[in-house]
Amino acid sequence: EQLARLKREFNENRYLTERRRQQLSSELGLNEAQIKIWFQNERA
Rank of each mutant, 00 (worst) to 15 (best):
E1N: 08
E1G: 10
E1H: 08
E1S: 10
Q2T: 12
Q2H: 09
Q2L: 14
Q2F: 09
Q2M: 12
A4V: 05
R5T: 05
R5F: 06
R5M: 06
R5I: 10
L6S: 03
L6F: 01
R8G: 04
R8Q: 12
R8M: 11
E9Q: 03
E9W: 05
E9P: 02
E9S: 05
E9M: 06
F10E: 02
F10S: 02
F10T: 02
F10I: 03
N11L: 14
N11D: 13
N11G: 11
E12Y: 08
E12I: 12
N13P: 02
N13W: 08
N13I: 05
R14Q: 13
Y15N: 09
Y15E: 11
Y15H: 12
L16K: 02
L16S: 02
L16V: 06
L16P: 14
L16Y: 03
T17S: 14
T17M: 06
E18A: 15
R19G: 11
R19V: 13
R19H: 13
R20Y: 09
R20E: 06
R21Q: 13
R21G: 11
R21K: 11
R21P: 02
Q22R: 14
Q22Y: 08
Q22W: 08
Q22N: 06
Q23H: 08
Q23M: 12
Q23N: 08
L24R: 00
L24N: 01
L24T: 00
S25E: 05
S26W: 14
S26M: 15
S26K: 15
S26H: 13
S26A: 14
S26L: 15
E27L: 09
E27P: 01
E27G: 02
E27K: 05
L28P: 02
L28G: 00
L28W: 03
L28I: 12
G29D: 05
G29W: 03
G29F: 03
L30T: 01
L30D: 01
N31H: 10
N31G: 12
N31A: 13
N31P: 15
E32T: 07
E32Q: 06
E32S: 08
A33W: 15
Q34V: 14
Q34H: 09
Q34E: 13
Q34N: 05
I35A: 01
I35K: 01
I35H: 00
I35T: 01
I35P: 00
I35G: 00
I37V: 09
I37D: 12
I37E: 13
W38P: 01
W38T: 00
W38Q: 01
F39W: 15
F39C: 03
F39P: 00
F39Y: 05
F39V: 00
F39R: 00
F39I: 01
Q40R: 10
Q40E: 15
Q40G: 04
Q40N: 08
N41W: 10
N41T: 09
N41K: 12
N41Y: 09
E42R: 06
E42I: 06
E42D: 03
E42V: 06
E42Q: 12
E42N: 05
R43G: 06
R43V: 11
A44D: 12
A44H: 09
A44C: 14
